[in-house]
Simulated assay, not measured.
Amino acid sequence: MNKIVCVQCPVGCKIKFEQQDGKIIKIDGNRCPRGIAYLHDELKEPRRIVPTSVKVINGVFPLVSVKTSKPVPKKYISELMNEIKKISVQAPVKSGDVILKNVFGTGADIIATRTVPQKQGSN
């Protein structure tokens, strides 16, 4: 039997499942229907929210924390991180600002999760 831990809520159900010819034939261990949906999504195309940071020019902090606005396919994460490394934003940055739109056509944006004011005396 295969195992996976559901991360859709804090419970973290340990789901056991069996597959045959690429189809799930048995599921056990989920406490709610979200676990079943999570399992199907994980097997079909796993997705993740990506938290990271972006360089800030003339900010009171050198970095601003950012994340994807919704989960993106895991296959894009490495490439996304390479793109984010190239980005820098000018202060001020406000929480909720869109830093990068529609990454890889997924419909997910990279958004700031923190406000970074501009340094005093920099224009």
Rank of each mutant, 00 (worst) to 15 (best):
R34V: 11
T52R: 01
D97V: 14
K14C: 05
A112V: 03
T115Q: 08
I110E: 02
V89Y: 05
V72A: 01
I87D: 02
G22V: 13
E18P: 06
V116Q: 00
S122Y: 11
N123V: 10
G29T: 05
I36R: 13
E83V: 08
C13P: 00
A91N: 12
S78L: 09
R47T: 14
A112L: 03
I24A: 00
L39I: 07
Q120S: 07
L39W: 01
R47L: 07
E42N: 11
A108V: 07
D41K: 13
P51E: 05
K16G: 08
V54N: 00
V7F: 12
S88W: 13
V5F: 02
G29M: 05
Q8M: 15
I87M: 02
K101R: 12
I49W: 06
I24R: 03
K44N: 11
V7N: 13
M81Y: 02
P46H: 11
E79M: 15
K44S: 08
C6R: 00
Y76E: 01
T52F: 05
S65V: 00
P46T: 06
R114V: 06
G29L: 03
I57A: 03
E79G: 15
G105V: 08
G12M: 02
L39A: 01
V93I: 14
S78C: 05
K86R: 03
N2I: 07
Y76I: 12
A37E: 13
V11C: 03
S88H: 12
A108H: 12
F61N: 14
I27C: 03
P46K: 13
